[in-house]
Every structure is written in C-alpha cells, then in structure tokens.
Design a protein around this nucleic acid. Structure first.
Length: 454
DNA sequence: TATACTCCAGCAGTGGGACC
DNA sequence: GGTCCCACTGCTGGAGTATA
C-alpha cells in the first residue's frame, strides 16, 4: 500500500459523530484508511472513502448507495473528486459486515437492499487496467500540451502561459489570495454550486492552468480543473492583485462587422453599452446591485445566438431570459442576419477564419448533421477574430519582464505587474491600444476595459 | 466435468455545474 | 455555439464460483 493518510477533517467528524474514545478510535482508524499523497493541498480535498474492508474481509467492497445518499445518511461531506489512485464511479457489490462494525460506525448508512444480511458500502475501486489506460492517455495528452501544434495560431501564447514565469506568479497569487477565495465562497448561497466551487478551487491550485487547442475552434482552453471553471466572483477573488483587460461586448462587436446587421452596427458605432441597453430594454430599470445578474441572463442568450445556438437551445439554456428578449428588434435582426451568414456558409461550403485559413464541412469534428456543421463553422469564424485581436495584446506585452500575463480567457487576460514602476499603467494602456488597433483593421470599433482587481 | 449463477470491469451515455 | 469538469446510471461479456 502506498502512503497511508487519514484525512483529519473526516477523522474528527466521525469521532465527534460517534462519540468514540481513544481505543475505539484506533480500531476505527484501521477501518478508515485513506490512500493518498499527504501534501499541502490534499488536505483541502475530502479524499476518497477507501474500502479497507477489502483487507479485512478479503474481498472488494463497493458502492451500494450513491455518494449523495451516503452524504445525506452520514451527514459527512465526503467526496471523491479528482483522486489520484481510485476510480470514482459508482458500481455495485454487496458485502457482509459484522454486527459490531455495523453498530458502531455505519448504522446510519447501511442499506440492506434486496438481500438480507448483506449491506452496501461506500468505497473506492482498485487500480485497474481500464484506469491504467486512462492515465496513460492523460500522460500522453499532457506531453502534447506542453508542445502545442506548430500550426496553432495561439502556439506562442500557450508556450508563454506554460512558462515558469507565468506559472510561478499565478501560483504565488493563488496562495496569497486564499483568504479572499474563502470569503467569496462563503458569500455564495449554500448548496451544490458552492460545494462544487470549493472543491474545484482546491483542485485547481495544484495543476495551475494547462492550455491547449481543441477540435472545432481556434480558441485555447484550460485543461483540467482550473480557476476558469469557478464562478466569476470566486475567480476574481483568486486573482486579486492583477489587472484584468477585457474586450467590451467583444462578440457583438465582431458580428456587427461580420454579419452587418444595421441596428446593431448603429449602436456599436455610437458606443452604446450594449449589455446595459439590452438589460434595460428587456427588464426595465433594475437596481444596480442586481444589474450583473440580469446582465448574465442576457449575456448567456446573446452568446448562444452568436455562436450558432438554435432557438430551442436559447430557451432551454437561458430560462431567465424574458420573452421580450427574443422580440427585441436588435435580437430579431441579429437572428435574421445570422441566418444569412449560415446560408452563405452552406453556399460556399466553409469559412475563411481571421488567420486566412479555409475551413470546410469536412474539418468539423464530432458533428454529423449539416446544420450542426454550419453552426460549428459559424462559431469558429467568430472565435477566430476574437483570438486574432486578442493576440495583438499578447504581442504588445512582448518580453517585458515587468508585466506577466498569468491567465487567458478568450476575450480577456489577467496581467500582473512586477516591480511596479511609474510607467506600468502606460504599458497596460499600450496593450489595450494594440488590441483596439488590430480590431480596427477589421473595421471593428473594439473597446478594452482595464480594471485592477482588489 | 458441465452447467448455472454471480459478479464486476469496462464502457457509453446522460445530466448538471462552470466559463466565454 | 465552443469547451472543461464530475457524478451517476445502465448494460454486457467474460471471469469466477457454486452446485449437481
């Protein structure tokens, strides 16, 4: 057996719950071994409930109940998230438990199921060939990520983000901002979302962010659990001390030029704050503290439209978006012009992206139907402009040792200023300008917002 | 030894969370 | 639409075990 480590939180919870004395404590521990590397971060994660009963009873144990049920029955907050040595799938096995153990420890979570005298139990599964293959695949993928494809337009960016400099600064920030993150997590409403966010945060600190290119878009994505999967408030708490540079309503600006819908173009040219306009047109005047929530509803629906989502998807995925949204003249027109853009893709058999690359139906992966391929290509086109424009910011940053880009998220970046000097703000301004200048070569009046996270 | 039964690894798929 | 993640369910073929 590898290192044996008992999760202290779980230990305390169980001892308290069952009011165990020291002698029983020792015995209990023999039943409750957890396998795992006892490093600094694992203590944040509730590690897998290990079926040491296998050792005691000489056979494998398994899950009869679900994790959810187990948590409810025991009142213990166990999880198996991202454990290194065990599968976390729920499968079914039944085992015999002796009465003593039954009484002392697990009376609350026994499940006799359909066979008397047999009970279910929660445990992990052993290392298997299946798991071995999966991990091998992961190792291969990791190798591939450390060396992104030569022809990927974001190759240099990926290499930069994987560099020692960028990763070290990010790691330092995450450690320093731990209290902020905890506060932000506590601020979330209780429930599954908070629970998942907390777990994800714990895991994300370890691997930091590994970026990679993916099949149907030129965007680069963080692989593995990472801070971008956290709610925005938590993520920004983790990145306190950096500057966030963000293209304002980037996707709307891009399609206003690619598809040229007159009403949207007019608003964009006027410099209208599109999110505010759409929120107020659809919901009326909203309280300032509620604005972000309403903006979120609108944003989600707009993204779905711009990236090709059908009417069903718009409705299903954005249940909080009111009827007035779909009837808004700008949105109605946007849908009409999107349809025209999709017709063009069908007619020409593909799209040319911002990097001059021609993509056809044959290049679309994992989509069978023609309309799915069209939507995917539509999305690829928009997202290629997003990357092409943002890359200019990365180029402007250059090899400047004072500015460190610590994270990248499609239309925004987080930059840390090292050895803050008087001209630092000017340098940030230069980056924003480079992005805006690139956008203007496409005729897109892009605006970059810069905000210090504190 | 043949047959019947039990078990479970491995896989595929779904659903629900996050982000743009 | 582009992704990422985890939790969970259900199915199946073959391995293992029990029994006649």
């Amino acid at each position: 057996m590898a290192d044996v480590w008992i999760n202290p939180i779980a230990r305390k919870a169980i001892l308290d719950k069952y009011n165990l004395n020291k002698k029983e404590d020792l015995r209990l521990m023999s039943y409750m071994l957890f396998e795992g590397a006892p490093d600094e971060f694992d203590k944040e994660i509730i590690v897998l409930w290990r079926g040491v009963l296998r050792k005691i009873y000489g056979r494998k144990a398994t899950i009869k109940t679900t994790l959810q049920e187990f948590r409810e029955r025991t009142g213990l907050d166990f999880d198996v998230y991202k454990h290194n040595r065990h599968k976390h799938r729920a499968t079914t096995v039944r085992i015999h438990l002796d009465e003593e153990i039954e009484a002392i420890i697990f009376d609350a979570c026994l499940d006799y199921g359909d066979k008397s005298g047999k009970v279910g139990f929660v445990t992990g599964d052993p290392y298997t060939k299946y798991r071995e293959r999966k991990e091998q695949k992961k190792r291969e993928q990791e190798l591939a990520y450390s060396e992104p494809p030569m022809d990927h337009p974001g190759r240099d960016l990926i290499l930069y983000l994987h560099s020692r400099d960028s990763r070290r600064i990010l790691q330092r920030l995450l450690r320093k901002n731990k209290p902020n993150v905890k506060a932000a997590l506590l601020n979330m409403a209780e429930g599954n979302r908070r629970y998942m966010a907390a777990t994800r945060w714990a895991v994300s600190q370890r691997g930091l962010i590994k970026y990679k290119g993916v099949a149907n878009t030129s965007r680069i994505y963080g692989d593995g659990a990472n801070i971008f999967q956290l709610p925005k408030a938590v993520r920004e708490a983790a990145l306190v001390g950096t500057y966030s540079l963000d293209m304002k309503s980037a996707q709307l600006v891009i399609v206003s030029r690619l598809w040229q819908p007159p009403l949207l173009m007019e608003e964009i040219n006027k410099g209208t704050d599109m999110w505010r306009k759409l929120v107020e047109d659809c919901f009326g005047k909203v309280a300032e503290e509620d604005f972000d929530r309403y903006k979120g509803y609108i944003k989600g629906a707009v993204y779905t439209i711009i990236f090709g989502g059908g009417k069903d998807r718009i409705k299903i995925e954005n249940p909080n978006c009111p009827e007035s949204f779909m009837k808004h003249p700008i949105i109605e027109e946007l849908l009409e012009y999107r349809k025209a853009a999709m017709d063009r893709i069908k007619e020409h058999g593909g799209i040319r992206d911002a990097f001059g690359e021609w993509w056809t139906f044959e290049d679309v992966e994992n989509k069978d139907r023609e309309d799915e391929k069209i939507r995917s290509l539509l999305s690829r086109e928009v997202q290629s402009y997003e990357l092409a424009i943002m890359l200019e910011g990365f180029k402007a940053l250059g090899m400047d040792r004072d500015l460190v880009m610590v994270a990248w998220l499609h239309d925004g970046v987080y930059i840390y200023i090292r050895n803050h000097k008087a001209n630092a703000d000017h340098k940030l301004y230069g980056i924003a300008q480079a992005i805006e200048a690139k956008a203007s070569t496409y005729g897109m009046p892009m605006r970059v917002e810069c905000e210090y996270l504190e």
